[in-house]
């Protein structure tokens, strides 16, 4: 894991995370895989285009549903850790709020899975906005909704499309929360993750490898919030006393990107990438 981690850190200066409109035209990729649109739950076709990371839409609704399920399981497993982080500098509800939100997401998906990645992420976003209750609801909800909107109604999307969509999600979080990197927020995990993902896409890495690099960068980004002084949210009232604690929002963002890696790896069946716990980091 040292390799991807180092690479992720090295991308820190590119500063291109919120200006993604220059990536390849999504429209063509969206139309390329219309035949995949009939995929149903339980199939293993999520990465049927795994060989090509650009231009072909290989990530379908089943993959994005698997991501949501991985997040729900990970949030449930780490609920107490997130709440403990939030009790240090927040109002001790982050784990419970996210658990409620993603449990509602899992229920919504069980009741009927949308056929396209865009519609699926929009459903995730709208459910989080309505169900989470805390500040992370509108923030993550906006991120998933904007990402869903960016994916349009394509039945399957490419890794480059996903990268672009997640950048739209990050832009949504930044706009709503007015946060920038260094404020000790979820942006401090998501922005470096997307820089790593963009670089991996440009290098032509396969999806599992690319998303693995993003997960490593998100984890490093979350841990880098520990020495920061909070400038947003309740923790900002603590001033210098917010230093020395990992930001709960950055921690949950790392978990969400890690869940994407787990979903992509599981669907791709890549050797050595079978555990939903990888890449693991200290609590």
């Amino acid at each position: 894991m040292a390799g991807p981690d180092d690479r992720a850190r090295d991308t820190g200066g590119t500063g291109n995370a919120d200006g993604m409109s220059d990536t390849n035209g999504a429209g063509g990729a969206h139309e390329a895989n219309a035949a995949n649109g009939t995929t149903r739950a339980g199939t293993t076709r999520g990465l049927n285009g795994a060989g090509g990371t650009t231009g072909t839409g290989g990530l379908d609704a089943a993959l994005f549903a698997a991501w949501a399920e991985e997040i729900a399981a990970a949030v449930r497993a780490d609920r107490d850790r997130l709440t403990a982080l939030d009790s240090a500098i927040g109002d001790a509800d982050h784990g419970a709020n996210l658990d409620r939100g993603f449990t509602a997401v899992a229920e919504a998906l069980a009741g009927g899975r949308p056929d396209t990645p865009g519609a699926l992420l929009s459903l995730v976003g709208n459910t989080l906005i309505r169900k989470v209750g805390g500040a992370s609801g509108p923030l993550y909800g906006m991120a998933f909704r904007e990402a869903g909107k960016a994916l349009g109604d394509a039945p399957a999307v490419s890794l480059a499309d996903l990268d672009e969509a997640l950048a739209a999600g990050l832009a949504g979080i930044r706009k709503l929360g007015s946060a920038t990197e260094g404020d000790k927020t979820m942006v401090d995990a998501l922005a470096p993750a997307l820089r790593a993902l963009t670089q991996a896409v440009q290098e032509g890495q396969d999806p599992a490898e690319a998303v693995g690099a993003a997960a490593e960068a998100a984890l490093a980004g979350a841990q880098a919030t520990i020495p920061m002084q909070a400038r947003k949210g309740r923790a900002s009232y603590l001033g210098p006393r917010s230093v020395g604690h990992e930001d709960p929002g950055a921690a949950s963002t790392a978990l969400i990107v890690r869940a994407l890696h787990a979903a992509v790896s599981r669907t791709a069946g890549a050797p050595g990438e079978t555990s939903r716990r990888a890449p693991e980091g200290p609590a």
């Binding site: 109002d91 906005i129 209750g133 805390g134 500040a135 609801g137 509108p138 923030l139 909800g141 906006m142 709503l176 929360g177 949210g233 309740r234």
Partner: peptide, 10 residues
């Protein structure tokens, strides 16, 4: 404050 502001913005 907090989530109230973000929800209002939506």
């Amino acid at each position: 404050l907090g989530s109230s502001v973000l929800t209002a913005r939506l």
